[in-house]
Simulated assay, not measured.
Amino acid sequence: MNDPLDNPADDPMDNLVDNLVDNAAGDAVKDALSVVLAGGGSAGHVNPLLATADALRELVPDCNIVVLGTEDGLEARLVPERGYDLEFLPKAPFPRRPNAAALKFPASMRRAISRAAEVIRGADADVVVGFGGYVATPAYLAARRTDTPIVIHEQNARPGLANRLGARFTEHVATTFDTTPLRGARVVGLPMRTEITELDRAALRDEGLSHFGLRADRTTLLVFGGSLGAQRLNDAFPAAAAELRTAGVQVLHLTGAGKAVDVPEDDDCPYVTREYSDRMDLAYSVADLAVCRAGAGTVSELTAVGLPAIYVPLPIGNGEQRLNAADVVAAGGGLLVADADVTAEWVRETVVPLVADRERLDQMSAEAAVMGTRDAAEVLARLVLSAAGRDPA
């Protein structure tokens, strides 16, 4: 008869230990937090999603995070670059009018819901977090089908259709603005990347001036219309370049992809044009005043860093941009002007005197900073943990 000690592989005690280890490993996997994040299409959805993902990883380093997106949205590039798993859903946009697309919508939505449910089950998700956009609706409906808790973040003052629908399925609703009409919502602000939330404008000013080729002895006006630019701004400000220079105001003008403008060079008072910059932290650091659109991300970033602004809401859509800027304008941290009123003459009569008024700019900066929120990503991440039944402390 063989002694088990002669063959360690057959030792009953080793088998018992192996079973205990396997069971412990299984329990650890089961206890690991798993989160599915849904949002995509535009930077307005993708950026707060990524900021929240980063905050979750900071709070729960072993958190499993899967992102639902579309193949042709910004998330297709940005999410993998940040190191998160991305699963694609077929697009199923709500039809705005009765047409051929409307006839295909029910089948498209069913496919998107089925795929979202497959991802949620595959990830063994504890919670689904939606930020609006095309993928949010099927994600919410799939979460309901799989009995998975839902958390919603709405970035705009006027909520989109997806988040209005999703808010009917959950009590865990967060917003950027306190004027957003979603029942039971908690105002947390907009989750933003740490380059903005931890920005010290004064400390980075010299680096920003060098980066953009600007002078330290000039007042700086920042003009930008988002990644696609704003034609109204691109027409008005170059036409008033001479008056801005006479007033000692240098300009950093981000014109938008494919929308370059031509302004004569002047080393004494530069007018720097770039189609795009991936260093908005440096752009904010050099600016004394901004003129820009009023997307939720723009308003939230400018208030977070205390930069006064003249907001020019996009003149199309549902009017959400005007509402996004309403609170900071009411507080005195910004001005609001209609797109049609932005002309070279308006720049000369309104912008030039304002950017030369240091006392007023300082006051506007202080009021903007009061309205800003820098900890929204962490606050939302803790709300996600709570919805998932985890201790958010």
Rank of each mutant, 00 (worst) to 15 (best):
V35L: 08
T137K: 12
Q363C: 01
V351Q: 11
P353F: 04
E195I: 09
A356V: 04
P80S: 12
M280S: 11
R201V: 00
A100S: 09
E58M: 03
F131V: 05
A107R: 14
I150F: 05
S300A: 15
G229A: 14
R82F: 12
A247I: 01
A102D: 10
D18T: 07
T255H: 15
V46W: 14
L361A: 10
A185I: 02
A139V: 03
R348H: 10
R158E: 11
A387G: 07
G83F: 13
G40Y: 06
I113T: 11
A241M: 03
L37G: 14
D281G: 06
L20E: 07
M13W: 15
R158K: 06
H253Q: 03
L190F: 13
V251G: 08
L222Y: 06
T220F: 00
A242T: 08
F105T: 05
A162N: 10
G69A: 03
R348L: 03
R183F: 00
V384P: 14
T146Y: 02
A136D: 11
A142P: 01
D362A: 15
G41P: 09
P138C: 11
V337S: 13
A387E: 05
G372Y: 13
T179Y: 08
A239S: 14
D14K: 15
A51K: 10
I196H: 15
A326E: 02
T298R: 06
A102M: 06
K104V: 05
A366Y: 11
L307W: 14
V188S: 15
R96H: 03
L380H: 11
Y311I: 02
A340L: 09
V129E: 12
G122A: 11
K30S: 13
V67A: 11
L380Y: 03
N15P: 08
A100Y: 00
T220V: 01
D266N: 14
P138R: 14
D22F: 02
A157D: 06
